[in-house]
């Protein structure tokens, strides 16, 4: 008996296997990072198609991030710290129309990525010098470098800090203080 291959059946099988693999990969990439989940997330998932569904857990984001910078004009002359306006309050219509959320999420992602990488840089090199070559660090440095300089040959330093938003009982804390970068 000759088995006749129907293109519809072949297509159906291929798509079903693909969707089943996608679902399985999603399950494998939740919770604890394993070798398989690392391989899927960092080597295969080029388009960020494997979601992490652990929203706001296990550690909910309970701090606001702040990005500040200042200029060094000379050894004795520093500008005041200036904050990049990112954590502005939402409007009444934010439940429907909220373009501001992107800036906040970008900074939050970048800072979390930086913070997460700090221990591994400390462990590998004993200091944070190599952190300056990481993409999140360069994104932050690039963002602050776009602001008007105090003088032509100044150096710029940035600071990442966190605060507890509307709860005033906790003091703002420093996350990272950069070196001075020539602009």
């Amino acid at each position: 008996m000759i088995l006749k291959l129907d293109p519809t059946v072949i297509y159906e099988t291929v798509v079903t296997v693909f969707l089943a693999s996608w679902f399985l990969a999603t399950i494998l990439c939740q919770f604890k990072e394993t070798k398989i989940s690392w391989l899927i997330r960092y080597k295969i998932d080029f388009f960020n198609l494997i979601p992490l569904w652990t929203f706001f857990a296990p550690h909910p984001g309970k701090r606001d991030y702040h990005l500040l910078f200042r200029d060094k004009i000379s050894d004795a002359d520093y500008s005041e710290w200036q904050e990049m306006e990112i954590t502005e309050e939402r409007t009444f219509w934010s439940w429907l129309w909220n373009p501001e959320k992107r800036d906040k999420k970008i900074l939050s992602d970048v800072v979390q990525s930086l913070v997460a990488s700090i221990p591994s840089y400390r462990e590998k090199t004993g200091n944070l010098n190599l952190l300056m070559f990481s993409t999140p660090y360069i994104i932050v440095l690039h963002a602050v470098s776009q602001y008007k300089k105090r003088s032509q040959d100044c150096y710029r330093q940035f600071m990442l800090a966190e605060s507890s938003g509307y709860q005033k009982e906790t003091e703002p804390a420093l996350i990272l203080l950069s070196v001075f970068h020539q602009m």
Binding site: G61, K62, D64, Y65, E88, S164, G165, Y166, Q167
Partner: peptide, 9 residues
Amino acid sequence: DVFSTKTYG
């Protein structure tokens, strides 16, 4: 804690 942040609260 989440609601008390300006980012998500």
